[in-house]
Amino acid sequence: MRPRRFDLIVFDWDGTLYDSTGLIVRCIQAACADLGLPVPAPSEAAYVIGLGLHDALAHVAPSLPPERVPELGQRYRHHYFKRQHELSLFEGTLALLEALKARNHWLAVATGKSRQGLNEALGHVELRGMFDGTRTADETASKPHPRMLNELIAEFGVAPERTLMIGDTTHDLQLASNAGTPSVAVSYGAHEPETFHQHGPLHIAHSMAELHDWLVRHA
């Protein structure tokens, strides 16, 4: 077996491993409608996926007074938790993670979800124990601030250049750039792939199967 290029592989969650982009967009729109706010277009709602919930909702509802953003967050959670049982991993995700574990990579998640939201998702898809470390936006700084990635790098004692960040948004790629780590983008999530090139990912994968193939060959 060839030597590993990366010791630690860090995944975004929504839109990268978990097929949740469409539901998140609809829940953001429904929450705005509940409060009588302008309903953002799907592309506007998708843009904020990956940010911490407070930052995301403040961005899509700029006319909402800051003290009411938590109220909008409550409406978002209401809609999301009512439907989250419909969500699942992208097909091929488990096979990818198992292949990387077999190569003795450390695996981690860096997400804009809350700790409660990530734990519920991990429990729902029976992934507890698959990841060696996780960071959520409510326990550290939100993307694209590098803190959550820096904390994972420090936790495992790896060099930034031997850490790989994988995500579906420019927020993920900017997070990697800010932390000094290489990145890989996936085009099947929240952001359009033409926005990725300015951040210099090593590769843009257009399916989970392509991501699997690239990682097995290059990680």
Rank of each mutant, 00 (worst) to 15 (best):
T136S: 15
S177H: 14
Y188C: 01
T195D: 11
P160N: 06
W214P: 05
I166M: 10
A141E: 14
G167C: 13
P193F: 03
H199D: 00
H206C: 05
A137G: 09
F156R: 11
E210H: 11
A209E: 15
L152K: 03
S183W: 01
L173W: 08
H206M: 05
A154V: 05
G133I: 00
A209F: 03
T136M: 08
G133Q: 00
N178W: 01
V184R: 03
D132T: 09
D132R: 13
P144Y: 13
D168S: 10
D213Y: 00
R162G: 04
G200Q: 14
R135T: 06
E151P: 04
A154L: 12
M148Q: 14
A205W: 08
G133A: 07
D138F: 02
G189N: 06
E161D: 15
I153Y: 12
A185V: 03
T170C: 14
E194R: 08
N150A: 12
T140E: 06
S187P: 02
L211Y: 12
D138N: 08
H212A: 10
A137E: 04
K143D: 10
T170P: 01
E161S: 14
P160I: 04
T170L: 09
Q174F: 01
A179D: 14
H197V: 05
A141M: 13
D138V: 02
V186N: 13
E192D: 13
E192P: 01
R135F: 02
G157D: 14
I153F: 14
G200E: 09
A159L: 15
A159P: 02
A176C: 06
G133F: 00
P144T: 12
Y188K: 02
V158A: 04
Y188Q: 01
A205Y: 05
E155C: 08
V186E: 11
S177A: 15
P160Q: 04
E139G: 07
R147T: 14
P144L: 13
D138S: 06
Q198K: 09
S207H: 08
G167T: 07
A137N: 08
E155Y: 10
P144Q: 11
L152M: 11
L173E: 03
T169W: 01
M208A: 13
E210P: 00
T163A: 13
D213P: 00
G189R: 07
M148E: 11
S142G: 12
T170I: 12
T181G: 03
A141C: 10
H206V: 00
I204H: 09
P144D: 13
T136N: 12
H212Q: 14
G200K: 05
A154K: 10
A141Q: 12
L164Y: 10
L149Y: 07
I153Q: 06
H145P: 05
A159E: 15
P182N: 07
